[in-house]
Design a protein around this nucleic acid. Sequence first.
DNA 1: AGTGCGGCCTGTCCGC
DNA 2: TGCGGACAGGCCGCAC
Length: 271
Amino acid sequence: MPELPEVETTRRGIEPHVKGKRVVRVIVRDPRLRWPVPRSLARELPGQRIGATRRRGKYLLLEAEHGTLLIHLGMSGSLRVLKRDEPPRKHDHLDVVFDDSAILRYHDPRRFGCALWVKGEVERHELLRDLGVEPFSDAFTAEYLAGQAARRPGPVKSMLMDGSVVVGVGNIYANESLFAAGIHPHRAANRVSRDRYASLVEHVRRILGRAIERGGTTLNDFVGSDGEPGYFAQELLVYARAGEPCRRCGGTIALSPRIARATYFCGRCQR
DNA sequence: AGTGCGGCCTGTCCGC
DNA sequence: TGCGGACAGGCCGCAC
């Protein structure tokens, strides 16, 4: 399930194979993604060279000369680079074919992802416009989080997973970061001290960074652009460990479905 | 305006 | 062994 580390792993994996290459063809086998793949993509992208690849939150941006290919992997999407053509497998919905015969192939069984063609300033696109700060940017600070939290009596975990506050922190990494910072996921956001937000900021960065180093987290189906799974799952301390012993205090990891999907925590270590 | 929930999908797992 | 149903999960869109 791609969160920021999985998307960044994918970006780093594909960049050497697409940067500077010219697109010769776009093949849409099934346009029925979260939003239909626009016809303009196959019509306009061919002939253009890909420049930089970027990431904004969990969106991948492939900048072409006169537009941007905007891709989201949803929860089951992956991108692979093929050296040459091979028969598409089930759920291989989209190919971008390059002038050296390499193919960027989009695979997404659940079709929660999207592939859009954006002209003009991509940052102003409605999907990106209202996104919160990047966790690795200077804007992600304890002061910023405390400020956001001031009007939020709801659970701190909900705020952490709110993409209009900070991007890229999905369910897995929210659970892990709150455990590392010793903050109870049910605690009201406006009742977390500034010092503890400072700790949370550090742990979010450390955990996301470590997950990127390990190639992401593979629980069911995530694979990087080379087809390899990620290895961060081995380092998860609370996620998917309900009923198992806390690695810090030996207590039992609890599972609460109350907030935004499955919430795992240690009731002794997190307050 | 923050918050929670339904819905979109399909593969996987569980119980009968 | 077969099959229905619950579940997972990002995130938009909507209701409150």
